[in-house]
Amino acid sequence: MLRLRRLREGALFHRIHRKTLSALFFGPSGATPLQRYDDPAGGYKLLYLALDLETAFGETLVRVPSVTDVLASDVAVRARSELVALRALRLYPLVDAGVSAHGLSFTELHGSDYRRTQAIGADIHAGSSADGILYTSRFNDRRCVALFDRARDAVAIRSTAALMPEEAHALAARFGKQYVDP
């Protein structure tokens, strides 16, 4: 059995999200799974977080590597939020041996076919006491967290603000993308 990783109380998380949704939105809104670790049966919800703003930007606005532009209109409908852990979080690691323990490689884990990762997320949710999953971004290999809704009370919003065009321009450039205002 793998040991759960701990993130300390007070740990900061970053999230870029639609302005129409709370920074604490656990999704998806319906039963159909949309993201990497969403429940295939729709029974639990997840809050996706990054440990730094650059990773949150990549995971949200650089979704398709072949697309060369980040559109100002996509940025304008989003906010950037910082969240804080109100207690230590116990996370199931899919960052090293945890990947192989599920019969996956990082190639599969970072792929665009989410059926296997969603099934693994459901297995982790059902078979562990983890608050969520610790995984690596497929855009810069930095850490992300998929927090299960059973740990809803473990995080709080620290701040929310607009994602400014200058900031979006600099972040897009870090991923080799152009920030454009069509």
Rank of each mutant, 00 (worst) to 15 (best):
G30P: 08
T107V: 15
A79G: 07
Y44G: 00
A41I: 13
G42L: 00
V70T: 06
Q35A: 15
V77D: 12
G98Q: 08
H110D: 11
Y48N: 09
T55V: 08
L109C: 03
D39P: 02
L104S: 05
E108T: 04
D74W: 12
T68L: 13
V84W: 07
V62Y: 05
P40C: 03
V84F: 13
V67L: 11
V64N: 13
S66H: 11
L51P: 09
G103Y: 04
R80M: 09
L46H: 10
A31H: 05
S105Y: 04
Y92K: 02
V67H: 04
D52K: 02
V67G: 04
L104H: 00
H102Y: 15
L83N: 00
D52E: 06
Q35T: 14
F106A: 05
L49N: 07
L89C: 05
A85F: 05
L47H: 06
S81T: 06
G98C: 01
E54V: 08
D38V: 01
V62E: 01
G103M: 00
D69L: 14
T55M: 08
A50F: 06
A72C: 05
A56E: 06
D74R: 09
S112K: 12
V99M: 00
V62A: 08
Q35D: 13
H110V: 03
D38C: 01
E54M: 09
Y114K: 11
D74Q: 14
A76Y: 05
